[in-house]
Amino acid sequence: MIDSTIISLLKDSTTQNEGFVLLINQYKEKLYWHIRRIVISHNDADDVIQNVFIKVFKNIHSFKGQSSLYTWIFRIATNESLSFIRKKQRQSMFIEYAELVESTLSSDPYFNGDDVQKMIKKVIARLPEKQMLVFNLRYYEEMKYEDISTVLGGSVGGLKASYHHALKKVKKYIKSQNIQYEG
C-alpha cells in the first residue's frame, strides 16, 4: 500500500520531494544492510545507498510496475553494490572478493565482530556470487524465493538449490574450523 503511494508521489513533479522522503524512510535500513553485506565497509555502503536512492528517484518513470517497488529497489541496490565491488577489485589489481572482504573487515572501524563473526563473513564471501546473494537475501533478509527471483533472476527451484548449497558450504566450513557457533 505504501509502495503505491510512494510511486504516485514520486511520479508527480509537484509531490516528488515528499515521495522521496517517504521512500528513504521506508527503505533506508533494509537497503543499507543488504548493501553493507555485499560491500562490507560502512563508508562504502553509505556511498552506494545514496547512489541507489538517487537512481530510484531519477528512474522512477521507467518503473512500469511489472514487479513490486521493493524488489525493483533491491535489484538496483544489488547491481550498484556489485558494480562498486568490481570497480574496487579493478583498482586493487583484480583482487579476489574473499580477500577484499577480509581486508575490508580488518580496516573498517565500524566492524567490531569477533573472530567467529569475521570467519562467517569470510566463508560467505568465498561462495559463488549468486549463492552469496541468495544466502544474504534469504538468510538475513528472509526474502521470499519469488521475490529473490525478481531481484536476481532465475527460477525459484534454482534459487532454492543455490541457498541449499550455500548453507551446506557455510555449515561444512564452520564445522571444519571447529567453530562453536550459537546461531
Partner: peptide, 14 residues
C-alpha cells in the same frame, strides 16, 4: 554480524 554504524546514522542519512 558484527556490523556497526555511526551514531544516528539513519537519521543523518535521511
Amino acid at each position: 554480524e558484527g556490523f556497526e554504524t555511526p551514531d544516528q546514522y539513519f537519521d543523518k542519512l535521511q
